[in-house]
């Protein structure tokens, strides 16, 4: 039963993600997570300020239920399937983190240098996270999709726009990692 506690390799996760997309399509949905951000804005009353949010949110309720499931899935993984080993990063990556002033990872997911500890987050960390989140939300709607909608759903349907968007994801991501991180940290 060890396999369930250790991290799953790419050749398990990739096919399972394709299977997730298949289930969603057959259920009458599709794989695209960022659309939920728009639906949540509508529910919060954004339709009073912009036509973009004048949508019938009930038509997208299935996707919110999917996200609710994803939160529960995350909770169950943390409670029952947790991996206590630190993440197995490339040593070169750990060295690059050290030059930014980040300690070697002792956990699996989040560096305390940005996300803080369980009950404290620095002003700088909070600012970076709100800016990061803003760029994700703005960029996903401008590009009409995120990693799941463009990289997986879009490329699976041979969409050239999705290929352009994914190229953009990597131009942006590599610029942040290589050019902006040394300035920010």
């Amino acid at each position: 039963m060890d396999w369930i506690y250790v991290s799953w390799p790419w050749y398990v996760a990739g096919p399972l993600l394709a299977l997730t997309m298949f289930f969603l399509l057959v259920l009458g949905g599709n794989l695209g997570l960022s659309a939920n951000l728009r639906t949540l804005c509508t529910i919060a009353g954004a339709n009073k300020y912009a036509d973009f949010f004048k949508i019938d949110y009930k038509a997208y309720r299935w996707n919110l239920i999917f996200v609710l499931g994803a939160i529960i899935g995350g909770f169950l993984s943390a409670q029952l399937l947790s991996n206590t080993q630190p993440i197995d990063l490339n040593p070169d990556t750990i060295e690059a983190l050290a030059t930014l002033g980040f300690s070697a990872p002792t956990t699996n997911h989040l560096p305390p240098e940005i996300f803080g500890s369980s009950n404290f987050i620095s002003f700088k960390g909070a600012l970076l996270l709100i800016v990061g989140g803003f760029l994700v939300g703005f960029g996903a709607r401008y590009a009409g999709g995120c990693t799941s909608g463009h990289a997986i759903s879009g490329l699976s349907n041979l969409q050239i726009p999705s290929l352009i968007a994914v190229a953009g994801f990597f131009i942006g991501g590599m610029s942040m990692t290589h050019l902006l991180f040394p300035i920010l940290f």
């Binding site: 960029g139 995120c146 994801f169 942006g172």
Partner: peptide, 9 residues
Amino acid sequence: GGIIFGLGW
């Protein structure tokens, strides 16, 4: 849009 998303990601 993709570049903005990538920066945030």
